[in-house]
Computed example of a mutant assay.
Amino acid sequence: MTARQGVVLYGPPASGKDTITAALTELNPKYAQFARLKVGSGKSVGYRMGTVEQLRQLEAAGDVVYANTRYGNTYVIDRPGVDAANAAGAPVVHLGQVDGIRALVDGYPADWLAVLLWCSRKATEQRSVGRGDSDTAARLAAWDATREDLDAHPSMAWDLTIDTTKVSPQDAACLIDQLLAQRAGAASA
């Protein structure tokens, strides 16, 4: 049986999480973005929309691996969702909080590759405006929160750090795929 593997992409808004996930999926179909459960409103693409009652049921069952609130919504990494994603391949989980990475790595058994994607605040602003976000100010506030989060967790060990203003999405995907393959090879040796 192959060990469970997954990728965590951490970074501020517009650092390239969606773009690099798309490049990973093109490189190897085993990769698929993990669709977090979203309780709230707004953008539904890339999420499994849920209700407050579903969230309560997951909490009561102990199946919430991590939850956070941002942009007026609650975003949940749930055990049944990660189970299904792992059964299908190697999930790519997008996170913007170090505590979320630690909760996932500590709370769900798998070989998780933690990747820090970084870009400047100015790059986040330019990308957000360029893609037509209506909430660029909130994205910049989230960039600031991500910077503060990193500063508050200097001991966080990253498996890979990628400056997305200098590395193409395709090259980033290759680096991630190669490192995950190396780890799988080392684990089976």
Rank of each mutant, 00 (worst) to 15 (best):
L117H: 07
Q126F: 05
C174M: 14
V93W: 10
A173C: 06
V129C: 03
Y71D: 02
Y108M: 09
W158D: 13
R127G: 05
V92L: 09
I77E: 06
Q170Y: 11
L180K: 02
A152Q: 05
V76R: 02
G81Y: 01
P13A: 07
W112M: 05
D149M: 00
Q170S: 13
V115T: 03
Y66F: 11
V76M: 05
S41T: 12
S15W: 01
E53I: 01
F34G: 03
V76I: 12
G42C: 03
V98F: 07
R48Y: 02
T74S: 13
S188A: 14
Q54D: 09
R36L: 10
A186P: 00
A141W: 00
P80W: 07
A189W: 01
D159S: 05
G89R: 01
L150G: 13
E26G: 06
L160H: 09
L95Q: 05
S41I: 04
V115Q: 02
V93L: 14
G72H: 09
T19F: 01
S168V: 08
T69C: 12
A84N: 05
P29K: 06
P154F: 01
D83K: 06
V7M: 14
N86Q: 10
V39M: 08
T19G: 06
D177E: 11
V76C: 07
H94F: 10
M49N: 04
D151W: 08
D163Q: 11
P91N: 10
E59A: 14
A60V: 01
D106F: 04
L113P: 08
G72I: 07
I162G: 06
F34H: 08
R131P: 03
V129Q: 09
D171G: 01
L104E: 13
A187R: 14
K17E: 00
G6P: 08
Y47F: 14
L179V: 05
V167M: 15
Y10A: 15
S155L: 08
M49Q: 05
A141D: 09
L179M: 14
G107W: 03
G6R: 07
V39Y: 09
R4I: 02
D133N: 11
M49Y: 00
M156F: 00
D63E: 15
G100E: 10
G81T: 03
L175R: 15
A22P: 00
L160R: 08
A67H: 10
S15A: 15
S168F: 09
D111T: 08
V64K: 13
Q97H: 14
P80F: 03
L160E: 12
T19M: 04
S188R: 12
G42Y: 06
C119F: 04
A172Q: 12
G185E: 12
V82R: 11
T69Q: 15
D159G: 05
G132Q: 11
D78Q: 13
D163F: 14
G46M: 01
G11A: 10
D135K: 11
D163T: 06
G132R: 06
G62K: 03
A187L: 11
P12M: 13
Y108Q: 10
R79P: 04
A85M: 03
G72M: 09
